Lab assay of single mutants.
Amino acid sequence: KELVLALYDYQEKSPREVTMKKGDILTLLNSTNKDWWKVEVADRQGFVPAAYVKKL
């Protein structure tokens, strides 16, 4: 499975999103959308801005 690194803190703004902290390592589930990537963090799945994460 592919992992991404959170480059910035992100606070979810809708139930479809997830909160992450800078430095978090997240499991990447889907990166087909260039703006929003689906990730899993702490047993929750949701979207984060693609610009806020980097593939490892």
Rank of each mutant, 00 (worst) to 15 (best):
E2R: 11
P49N: 03
L5G: 03
N30K: 07
L28H: 01
L56C: 10
T19W: 05
R16E: 12
I25H: 05
G23Q: 03
M20V: 09
G46R: 01
K22I: 06
L26I: 08
K1A: 13
K21S: 10
N30S: 13
P15R: 11
K55I: 14
L5V: 14
P15F: 09
K22R: 11
K54A: 13
K22D: 02
F47D: 05
A6E: 01
R44V: 07
D9P: 06
M20Y: 01
K54R: 14
K13A: 10
I25A: 03
T19R: 06
V4M: 04
N33D: 15
G23R: 02
V53N: 01
Y8H: 13
V41K: 15
M20E: 01
P49F: 03
V41F: 13
M20G: 00
L3A: 07
L29K: 05
M20P: 00
D35G: 09
V53E: 02
S31V: 07
L28Q: 00
R44Y: 05
T27M: 13
A51C: 11
E40H: 07
L3G: 04
L29E: 03
R44C: 05
K21N: 08
A42I: 12
L7F: 03
V4R: 01
D35I: 14
K34R: 13
E17T: 09
N33S: 11
I25G: 01
S31Q: 11
K38T: 08
L3E: 07
D35T: 14
E17W: 03
A51S: 14
A6Q: 02
Y8Q: 14
K38Q: 13
S14T: 12
Q45T: 15
G46C: 03
W36E: 04
K22L: 06
T27I: 15
L29P: 00
L28S: 01
V41R: 15
G23T: 02
S31T: 10
N30Q: 11
Q45D: 09
A6D: 00
D24R: 03
W37T: 03
L5S: 05
W37I: 05
A42M: 14
D35V: 14
A51W: 09
E40L: 10
A50G: 05
V4D: 00
K1R: 14
L5F: 09
A51M: 12
D9N: 09
Y52L: 13
P49V: 02
K21I: 09
K13I: 07
L26P: 01
V53C: 14
P15D: 11
E2C: 13
K34Q: 12
E17D: 06
K21T: 10
Y8C: 13
V18W: 05
K22P: 04
K38P: 01
V18K: 01
S31N: 09
F47C: 10
Q11E: 13
D9G: 06
K34E: 11
A6I: 03
L5A: 06
V41Y: 13
K22F: 06
V48N: 01
I25N: 03
K13E: 08
T19H: 05
V39S: 00
Y52D: 03
K34S: 13
A42L: 14
N33Y: 09
D24Q: 14
T32F: 10
D35P: 03
G46D: 00
K1I: 13
A50R: 13
Y8T: 08
P49G: 02
K54P: 02
L29R: 04
E12M: 14
L56R: 03
K1S: 09
L3T: 09
E12Y: 05
L26C: 09
A42K: 13
Y8D: 08
R44S: 05
N33W: 07
A50T: 06
V39N: 00
V18F: 12
L29T: 05
N33F: 08
F47K: 02
K54Y: 12
Q11N: 13
T32N: 12
W37S: 02
L29W: 06
N33M: 09
L7G: 02
D9M: 03
V48D: 01
D43V: 06
K1E: 09
K38G: 05
T19D: 04
D35M: 14
V39I: 08
T19I: 03
E17I: 04
Y10S: 01
K55S: 08
E12N: 07
L29A: 03
V48Y: 00
L56D: 04
I25F: 06
F47R: 03
T27W: 13
N33T: 07
A50F: 02
E40T: 08
R16T: 12
V39H: 00
D43P: 11
K21Q: 11
L28I: 05
V41H: 15
A50C: 07
I25M: 06
K1L: 14
E2S: 12
V18R: 01
V4Y: 07
K13Y: 05
G23I: 01
K34W: 08
L5Q: 11
E17G: 11
V18M: 12
Y52G: 06
L29Y: 04
